[in-house]
């Protein structure tokens, strides 16, 4: 009972109470479309583009082996392939940056 209490604001009133760790995470909005990230941990099996390639929205950039599936990682925007951060055979973690996309405009 002697633990330091946190502050929680509801309808402009500040309450002194415990706020468990899992309730403290800030909201993560939709990601930056210029950063192509792994949505799931896995292994890179094929990279279908090279740095400098011009691609259209929906283009398959690479294949990620996870959950017994070759998952197609696509671009949501038109653009140019910037830096490619991974090679075939790499194990990647969830949310790891794979490719930078240069989006014109």
């Amino acid at each position: 009972m002697d633990k330091e209490l946190d502050k929680l604001i509801i309808d402009d009133t500040e309450y002194l109470t415990e706020v468990p760790e899992h309730c403290r995470k800030p909201f993560e909005g939709p990601g930056d479309p210029s950063e192509i990230k792994a949505f799931i941990p896995g292994t890179i099996v094929e990279i279908k583009v090279s740095e400098g390639d011009s691609i259209e929205a929906g283009a398959i950039l690479l294949l990620l082996d996870a959950m017994k599936m070759h998952n197609e990682i696509c671009s949501s925007k038109d653009g140019l392939i910037g830096k490619i951060h991974v090679s075939v055979g790499d194990s990647v973690k969830k949310n790891q940056l794979l490719i930078n996309l240069i989006i014109p405009g």
Binding site: M1, L8, I10, T17, E18, C23
Partner: peptide, 8 residues
């Protein structure tokens, strides 16, 4: 439980 998360 007002002790945790003010009982929300």
């Amino acid at each position: 439980q007002p002790r945790v998360l003010a009982g929300v």
